[in-house]
Design a protein around this nucleic acid. Structure first.
Lengths: 81, 81
DNA sequence: TCCATATATACTCTTCACCGTATAATGTCA
DNA sequence: TGACATTATACGGTGAAGAGTATATATGGA
């Protein structure tokens, strides 16, 4: 169903996508989640390994939830190294 | 579908449940995830705010994945304060 | 091209997640 | 109840997440 997150790159893509879909700026998300705009930028670019509470707050700002699901084979990604 | 995670308590419960279901000890999970047994204990008890990569590794050791889903109303929990 | 807005990067500082290690507390079972 | 297995807690050390703040780069109109 939802997007599987196995690294910060996955997370960053998901966050940016969700933000664009809601037509929000990084500052807006940052405010809602009580973090810096800089952090949102870093997260979207997969530049940092965030803490769980941070991820949850940012996702909440984007009306998303973290969820735990049984593992399935990852969808094939030719760009993966 | 999967269990929604909105705080470390949610995470801890999910981890412990999954571990029990697989009939594993904390040490086993710890080894698989390359963390200390102590950390698994702390996570299960919601005693710490873990980092995303840690959560992912521990969940992977339990054949689980993190996933992002659109937010829905939380299921009613009478024990919530 | 100039200007405004948006995003990325930089720097110092503080806090805390996690480590290694050890041990206390709790369960389990003969 | 005693021996063993499992889980919880303790403690000093280290690295990095995130804050605050400032500024350097895009990006997009007029």
């Amino acid at each position: 169903m939802g997007k599987i997150i196995r690294n910060n790159k996955d997370l960053g893509e998901a966050i940016r996508l969700a933000r664009k879909n809601m037509d929000l700026r990084q500052v807006d998300v940052a405010q809602k989640a009580s973090v810096r705009q800089a952090l949102v930028s870093e997260l979207e670019n997969g530049a940092t390994t965030a803490r769980l509470d941070t991820v949850i707050r940012v996702l909440a700002a984007l009306d998303m939830d973290l969820s735990i699901v049984p593992r399935r084979k990852a969808t094939f990604d030719p760009t993966e190294y």
